[in-house]
Design a binder for these strands. Structure first.
Lengths: 244, 244
DNA sequence: ATCAGTTGTAGTCAAAGTGACTTTAACTAA
DNA sequence: TTAGTTAAAGTCACTTTGACTACAACTGAT
């Protein structure tokens, strides 16, 4: 057996013997007008890696869990540090712990997914190493982050179909058409306006305001307000809260 | 300031500075006949703690992530080691990472939940330090494990209402009435037999066999077989698999 | 052998929900 | 004023759901 290969084999068992590192990452979704159609579409911010594993590639914002934060606070801090924004929704996505996610040391990543309101997302800071991308059709990312984003997208679509998540991508006041546009952007299909309106009013976590959105070349639509948990984010589930 | 309290304050910041420990725990559900009514109810195995944090109290099977296992394999090993059984379903529940879950060191627990078939659960080994309990009405457990169990129960009920999980608690062949009993045990309400049958046959991941269950004092019911993923467990979701 | 009791299985019916569509109201731009 | 556009409400057929009834098939006791 050659000395070199023996050494690397020893390295493998060595690094697997030491305790895995713990990291927090966050998938951040926001609505932005697509360049082409102008219709709102899903975007997310990524950061460019400046160190060696996958240096130069884009990756999810995150890092090792160093501070004395709860997992959720650490995820919110990711968001704050990279975009300067506060989440309007934040939920744990999954803990990824495969043995070979990172080439050097074993890393277990606890990943959160977040939504920020479109108004705030418009003023998110970008830089050389922080850029926003369309959520669909991403290129290869660092580590397994591409698959993580796909999984987050699937979860987002799932929650959207029977839930009240859509409002967290909008501002405080919105028209029903805007809510419908969110559904259409996320689920990627058209929705009948009339039926959509009817269902929303039943399931209703919204209330009508007295205001109307002026300035269009049509009949001005009424503005609504979300009456569930407002701007604060809250844990994944209604009943027993797994936040600890 | 007294010396004692100064020392303990130093300890607090010290232990929060060192990296958190990583543990895997597993909530294991199985169906067992209740002592009183004889109807099947939900049970789960717990292990008695023999060391000091919460010594003597009951806790979820698990421990630090030491081996070079994937997270899911580590959870399956928990199950194997404490009960001698293999899971028929295994899925990640949540990552709990609160700062004060464990009194001494900070511990981040990645918790899985599993289901084992009732036939096998009947021959699960018990001992002085491993006992089965009814899933509802548990006493105080070690750490935050009581809340974790409650959350797992909620997830189980949720999956049950629109999913094909029930079969994993039964054997290979089963009557429709047995499936209904699973639903009634987990959801804790009665279900109309006729309507239940109708819905199962539509959503159908089952097929009828030619066999009938003899021996009762009634018309013998037909045996069915599950046609989805059989005894092997599979990841949480259909579309993108987060297993890594 | 017959009958009561129990459970499996199929069918009926009304109420509620859903998808496709039509109609009317309210506004802007020419 | 008129054409064009969108908001908002209503209609209608179809499907799904829950409660219930009826019948079939078996066991065990009389």
């Amino acid at each position: 057996m050659e000395r070199q290969s023996f050494a690397s084999a020893a390295n493998v068992s060595e690094r697997l013997a030491q305790p895995p590192a713990l990291a927090i990452s966050t998938v951040i979704f926001a609505l932005r007008p697509s360049e082409s159609s102008g219709r709102p579409t899903l975007w997310l911010p990524l950061v460019r890696r400046i160190r060696e594993p996958f240096k130069g590639l884009w990756a999810l914002p995150g890092g090792p869990l160093t501070r004395a934060d709860s997992l959720q606070d650490a995820a919110a801090r990711n968001l704050q540090d990279t975009t300067g924004l506060a989440p309007s929704y934040l939920e744990q996505l999954y803990a990824f712990g495969g043995l070979h996610r990172s080439p050097s040391q074993r890393v277990v990543s606890i990943v959160y997914w977040a939504m920020v309101q479109s108004a705030e997302a418009a003023m998110a800071r970008e830089s050389e190493n922080v850029k926003w991308f369309r959520a669909d059709g991403l290129d290869a990312l660092a580590f397994d982050h591409r698959q993580i984003v796909d999984y987050a997208l699937w979860r987002l679509r799932n929650k959207m179909t029977y839930g009240s998540i859509a409002y967290h991508l909008l501002g405080e006041k919105f028209t029903l058409a805007q809510v419908r546009e969110v559904y259409e952007a996320v689920l990627d299909r058209t929705v009948d306006p009339a039926n959509f309106r009817r269902q929303l009013k039943q399931t209703a976590h919204i209330e009508a305001t007295d205001e109307y959105l002026q300035g269009g070349k049509h009949r001005p639509p009424r503005l609504y307000r979300y009456t569930g948990a407002t701007s604060e984010y809250f844990p994944a589930t209604n009943p027993p809260s797994p936040n600890a």
